[in-house]
Nucleic acid binder design. Structure first.
Length: 528
RNA sequence: UCCUUCUUAGCUCAGCUGGUUAGAGCACAUGACUGUUAAUCAUGGGGUCCCUGGUUCGAGUCCAGGAGAGGGAGCCA
């Protein structure tokens, strides 16, 4: 079957005489072709020139390779063409693969011929630092850069290993609908659309459908997009994001927590095993990721609150004190960054400095200024967070800053469970041992990243559910089908929802979720 | 919805208590250079200082309103 398909494809491409239709040799495999003459196809990600030599860094999606085009070897005509190569022009380059210790992959290509496939005039992304807004406007091109390439490869690995984990654990992937007639939790803002004349909403969770599907298969997981119309402008919110929602029959909250822990350990380990190169490209310090083999601390809500308020220490670290220390560090760093900027600015004013050195200093100043901006933002935010942590009122949900405060004290993800039932979703099971609490669990990623998973054991008592639906002022008729799940053979069951982009963001230690998805959709951003 | 910071060349940014003709680096163009790693060096072109109104002899700079962006709160994965 597969062979027949390939034959048809090759036959068609021969018939059309498309000489550039197949990348036969890939940069990731250069080691196999040492000393051989091969043809690479890709894009020029960088070019440097000197008399009689042109250096083109070619990228083909699998890697980067420096190609040396020498006037002596290729002749005057091809050399003149090679000199005109611009950033991101697409090329086919034929030449010999040679070992060269100085190169990133350990090999370079010494060209014998170069063919231009597609021109590229005035490529907008320059070989220098750019602002976020500019890069987001050029997201379709930004994805070509090495850092974005690495992030997307890691995202791909995460997606692949999520499927691998659940499939090997006997879960069946089933999809929840994206059009829904009701608000599942009734809290967030929903995107409204027109469904044949009736209002319909884009799904903000497949959770309730997941429960129905679990009663058919035992263990299921959904993997699909989710929509939240929150006008949030923060580093952890998107309007459209991908969520993975497993749901298991005959699971209680503790078995659920065991599963979450094994699951996250599996995914992070897969990235550590298979994405060393990508993690190195983005400069991720993997030591924290390696802690994933340690057990995840499980904190009841009561304990988490004491830690946030500074009433209880963690391994000798106090939340309030360490936040105060951080503020002092930020202030000190601001001082030293300011001094360094002034020093460098004075230095480049002194006449006689070489142009290259001025350029280097200028680049350093630009970098320092960006850091200064970030630091000044922290200087404004940390006192607010301190205030919020000190005055945390027992019974409230954890805010974004509270999550940051508590997770900075740990080097592994933590699980906070047994929440006051008033602040959590209506479908969470009331704790049989203490009716104040609902059996929900949030997983908070370390290094200040905060919530990546929310889940829990589901309420099985129909009367309590009806009470809750009324309390939240949700339309009862829309939940009749959901109540049926309690009427016809209910069983203890639990599940959770994982935000894919938040997981990618933490694993890659990105400053913002927007870099974790190819084309982010967020407040104020619908293009490209 | 609220708080906060910002908007000057294609890009990243200077521009002091308001004062001649608005600056730098990168990018681009031309030239030089045989091994460059954001190559280097020389020369050159390039501006609605976000918009509207106000104060003033004079506004990139001060004031008011608006638009857009960054961050935070709320809400959440």
């Amino acid at each position: 079957m597969r062979c027949a398909f390939e034959c048809v494809f090759l036959h068609l491409s021969n018939k059309r005489n498309r000489s550039f239709s197949v990348q036969k040799y890939l940069i990731k495999d250069l080691g196999l072709y040492d000393g051989q003459e091969i043809t690479l196809m890709g894009w020029a990600s960088n070019k440097r020139e000197s008399k009689g030599l042109v250096f083109v860094v070619l990228r083909d999606g699998t890697g980067w390779c420096q190609c040396v085009i020498s006037q002596e070897t290729v002749g005057d005509a091809i050399f003149e063409e090679a000199k005109k190569i611009t950033l991101e022009a697409s090329l086919s380059i034929t030449g010999k693969i040679v070992k060269d210790e100085r190169q990133m992959g350990g090999f370079e290509l010494q060209a014998s011929s170069v063919t231009l496939i597609g021109n590229s005039v005035d490529y907008p992304i320059a070989k220098k630092e750019h602002g976020v807004d500019f890069l987001m406007d050029k997201r379709h091109l930004w994805l070509r850069s090495q850092r974005q390439w690495a992030i997307m490869r890691i995202r791909n690995k995460i997606i692949y290993s999520i499927h691998a984990f659940f499939q090997q654990e006997g879960f069946v992937q089933m999809d929840a609908p994206l059009f829904t007639g009701n608000a599942c939790e009734g809290t967030s803002n929903l995107f409204e659309t027109d469904f044949y004349g009736d209002p319909a909403y884009l799904s903000q969770s497949g959770q309730l459908y997941g429960e129905a599907m679990a009663f058919s298969m035992g263990k299921i997981y959904t993997f699909g997009p989710t929509f939240r119309a929150e006008k949030s402008k923060t580093r952890r919110h998107l309007s459209e994001f991908w969520m993975i929602e497993p749901e298991m029959a005959f699971y209680d909250i503790f078995e659920n927590m065991d599963l979450i822990e094994n699951f996250l350990r599996f995914v992070v380990s897969a990235v550590l095993d298979d994405c060393q190169n990508e993690l190195a490209v983005i400069g991720r310090d993997t030591s924290v990721l390696k802690n994933i083999i340690q057990p995840f601390p499980r904190l009841a809500y009561d304990e988490a609150v004491r830690i946030i308020k500074g009433e209880q220490d963690v391994n000798g670290k106090n939340a309030i004190v360490s936040l105060e220390d951080e503020l002092a560090e930020v202030k000190a760093r601001i001082q030293s960054v300011r001094t360094e900027i002034t020093e460098r600015e004075e230095k480049i004013k002194i006449p006689g400095m070489k142009k290259g050195e001025i350029g280097f200093n200028q680049a350093q100043i630009d970098k320092l200024k960006q850091e200064l901006g970030d630091l000044e933002e922290q200087e404004r935010n940390i006192p607010q967070w301190l205030n919020s942590a000190r005055n945390f009122e027992y019974g409230n949900d954890l805010g974004g800053s509270d999550e940051t405060v508590i997770t900075r004290l740990f080097e592994v993800p933590i699980m906070v469970y047994n929440w006051p039932h008033e602040v959590k979703a209506f479908y969470l099971k009331r704790d049989p041992e203490n009716s104040k609490f609902a059996r929900g669990v949030d997983v908070l990623a370390p290094e200040g990243y905060g919530e990546i998973v929310g889940g829990g054991e589901r309420e099985t008592d129909e009367k309590l559910l009806i009470e809750k639906i009324n309390e939240h002022q949700l339309p009862m008729e829309a939940f009749e089908w959901y109540l049926d799940l309690r009427r016809y053979g209910t069983v203890p069951h639990a599940g959770f929802g994982l935000g894919l982009e938040r997981l990618v963001t933490w694993i890659c230690k990105l400053p913002h979720v927007r870099e974790s998805i190819p084309f982010p959709r967020m407040y104020g951003r619908l293009l490209p």
